[in-house]
Computed example of a mutant assay.
Amino acid sequence: MATTTRTPETHGTTRTHNDCDPATRVTRSLLGYGVLAGPFYVSVALAQVFTRDGFDPAVHQWSMLALGDHGWIQVANLTLTGLMLVAFAVGLGRALTPGRGARWAPRLVAAYGISLVAAGAFRADAAYGFPVGTAEGPGDISWHGMLHLAAGAVGFTCLAVACFVLARRYTADGRLTWAVFSRIVGVVFLAGFGAVAVGAGAAAANLAFTAAIVLVFGWITAVALDRYRRTVSPS
């Protein structure tokens, strides 16, 4: 849907964002993937959380939804979300240039997107009774389970660092509320990741990590919307 803006040079006439030059339209389209990625991932995951037999959100992490007969749904969810984030990262780089964070913020977000694709390709190991029929307890770690954990560790770390990189950009731009918000999200996300890393299988750790995932995807959506609204055609 087109939105309108008034410009001094048109003396009260209006123009729509559909009148953007081609480069701006491409940038805004790429940023749009960042708006969609979080709601898409969270809604698809939650739909499975409440419908998959044997899945307990207090015990099992969302990545384990990739296991079992319907695991392809979560694999597709991880892959598509990861690709959307890579596209968003390209748009973010275009939207931030020139200025602080224009190089590293997009790279870090893209690394997280790639890690999601890798997490879908290398599935987590069955554990704690899921899928149904799996023995209770943490179980053995396979080679693909190890790669899954490695992808998560790299991706989560990159995304947390991206929060702080963008916080510096917001500070440089004089947008202190956004800077504080980004730093809080980075800290909370790191804390949630640390909690699940040392307390896998513990209800409090899993729920804290799930909350951190929802929060950081909300942050991505907010940042994408912010950059989308601020990306305009050169005069």
Rank of each mutant, 00 (worst) to 15 (best):
A195W: 13
M64C: 02
L65W: 00
G194A: 15
S142Q: 11
V42S: 05
V214F: 15
V132Q: 08
V26I: 15
R123Q: 12
M64W: 00
A172M: 03
F122M: 03
A102I: 04
C158G: 08
V86Q: 00
S235M: 06
F55V: 06
G91P: 02
G101H: 01
V187K: 05
F55H: 02
W72S: 08
A121G: 06
V187M: 12
V214S: 04
L190E: 08
A2P: 05
F189H: 14
G145E: 13
L147M: 14
W72F: 10
G186S: 14
D19I: 06
A124P: 10
R183N: 10
A76I: 04
P131R: 06
S63C: 04
G82Y: 00
I213W: 09
Y128D: 11
H144W: 12
T157K: 00
G129P: 04
T5V: 08
L147Y: 10
L80M: 07
G113H: 03
T4Q: 13
A45P: 03
A162N: 06
H70A: 11
Y170D: 07
A191F: 12
Y33I: 06
L207Q: 15
T221I: 11
L116I: 04
A89L: 01
A102F: 00
A205L: 03
V154W: 03
A211F: 12
F164M: 04
